[in-house]
Design a protein around this nucleic acid. Structure first.
Lengths: 94, 94
DNA sequence: ATCTTTAATCGTACATTCACGATATACGAT
DNA sequence: ATCGTATATCGTGAATGTACGATTAAAGAT
């Protein structure tokens, strides 16, 4: 869980996920064009997302095609859901 | 969003939230006793959670009473929900 | 008034993250 | 075979995060 959260813990990475979600096709490194960051920096963030399992990257010729990994997003959804459930049941009040 | 995620991005902080959720009363610094961390470290994590708004801290005599902040947890739930929705709608496949 | 307990803060050390430019690699086109 | 493009990786520096022990501050108990 903390691992997932870590992956989401940077605005650039959230932006990348939103870009991937919005483009129906899995676009490649023109992600960089949509962000105010250097190519190497974007590549780093992509790597972080990939090693958290949230996205996949397929090399396609000279380009690389990144996609959301629905499986792992489902897992995130379920983990986050159960955490938030737990937290929501609290009857404490101060 | 990234701010919230950052707050969740460490196992100790998740553990603290779960402890706060489970103890009906808002317990104080005996959170430390339930974690394998020094008091100062726990205090640091509490500070992080507090400045993210996820918990509140009330000084009560010599102790301090920490609680989940349901309002902000609701906000987190809704932000996370809409992010995950966006990500879930993606039709990309690679 | 002094002592004890609780918790915050300080100072420090080390690890990790973030951003960049430069370089390397690998593919496709000429 | 060479060139250009796309992307990953390297090396670096600055900033941030994590953990600890020591210190401080404030309240309650003696």
């Amino acid at each position: 869980m903390a691992e997932f959260a870590k992956a989401l813990a940077h605005p650039a990475r959230i932006a990348i996920l939103e870009i991937l979600a919005e483009s129906d096709m899995c676009i490649c490194g023109d992600i960089t064009e949509q962000l105010p960051l250097a190519q190497s920096t974007v590549s780093q963030h992509l790597k972080a997302l990939k090693s958290a399992g949230i996205i996949t990257g397929n090399i396609d010729g000279v380009k690389t095609c990144y996609c959301l990994n629905e499986e792992s997003i489902d897992e995130l959804r379920s983990m986050m859901g159960s955490l938030l459930n737990k937290l929501g049941e609290s009857s404490a009040y101060c």
